[in-house]
């Protein structure tokens, strides 16, 4: 009985949480301009989303978002991994200072990060555009990469690295053949986290994107919504994003559960 009520509560909450997304998904299969009008089943919005034409600016916004996310995540992963190796080998107050510095961007609200960088760029006189958005994304993503890689370094047996050196490996070989393979899983989850953070970001982007006409998905939606009429093609787009994330997360979860079971079985 207790279990029944508990489950009912969870499903009720989920129903409320998913109702808005569900409505968007349902109305992505009809042509009506105004959401809520059902004018018969149609996949026209899906085809017109990808054929461009009138909605060319939406496509280029998606493209910009992806390019920025990939470049920013890649730079963050490299910078963050190198930093994590350094921090791991620091002791005492130096380490505390680095950890505190690393925490600042994560504790700062997005709007503060955005405004502070905006003030930096305008006072130095840098024109804002692609480069500044990528730089800004690297700044708030890197701390998360550091936090993903550090636990890997802590789990690693540091003697392996020393052993490689003793056995005649050059420091470079030791890094490539011993250190990097050990921290690779942390680097991968750091990259994924940075990528999703970058795609999701709105507040930092809008302050660093400048007035050169560059648009990401977030700023496109924002401008679109302010104009009043929402581009109907945003409905299929939101649906696609939602389904992709759902499938991705469930696969990752099922895979890691399976891997855990395997590990347990091997352990026995």
């Amino acid at each position: 009985m207790k279990r029944f009520f508990a489950q009912a509560y969870l499903w009720l909450l989920l129903a409320i949480l998913y109702a808005p997304i569900l409505i968007i998904a349902i109305f992505s299969f009809t042509e009506a301009k105004v959401l809520g009008n059902w004018t018969g089943f149609s996949t026209k919005l899906y085809t017109s989303l990808f054929t461009g034409g009138v909605h060319h600016s939406l496509l280029s916004a998606i493209e910009n978002t992806l390019i920025i996310a990939i470049v920013a995540a890649a730079i963050s992963t490299v910078l963050g991994s190198i930093a994590a190796i350094g921090i791991h080998n620091l002791r005492g107050h130096k380490r505390i200072v680095m950890n505190t510095l690393n925490n600042i961007p994560m504790l700062n609200p997005d709007i503060i990060t955005g405004i502070s960088l905006f003030l930096l760029f305008v006072s130095v006189g840098i024109t804002q555009g692609f480069a500044t958005v990528i730089l800004a994304h690297v700044i708030f993503c890197t701390p998360y990469v550091v936090l993903c890689v550090l636990p890997r370094l802590q789990q690693m047996n540091s003697d392996i690295y020393e052993a490689a050196l003793d056995l005649g490996a050059t420091p470079m070989q030791a890094i490539y053949k011993v250190l990097i393979p050990e921290i690779k899983p942390g680097m991968i989850s750091g990259f994924i986290l940075a990528f999703t953070l970058s795609i999701d970001d709105f507040a930092v982007t809008i302050f660093t994107i400048g007035t050169g006409g560059l648009e990401t998905l977030s700023t496109y939606i924002y401008a679109d919504a302010r104009k009043g009429g929402l581009t109907p093609e945003l409905r299929p787009l939101s649906t696609i994003i939602f389904v992709t994330v759902l499938v991705l997360l469930i696969t990752i979860n099922v895979r890691s559960q399976r891997a855990n079971k395997k590990k347990k079985a091997l352990g026995k």
């Binding site: 909450l13 997304i21 409505i23 999703t196 999701d200 939606i221 919504a225 945003l234 994330v245 997360l249």
Partner: peptide, 18 residues
């Protein structure tokens, strides 16, 4: 329950408006 965290906040807000 955690999934909505991964969806763009503006998309979520527009869904609420919808």
């Amino acid at each position: 329950f955690i999934l909505p965290m991964w969806i763009n906040i503006l998309v979520r807000t527009l869904a609420t408006v919808a």
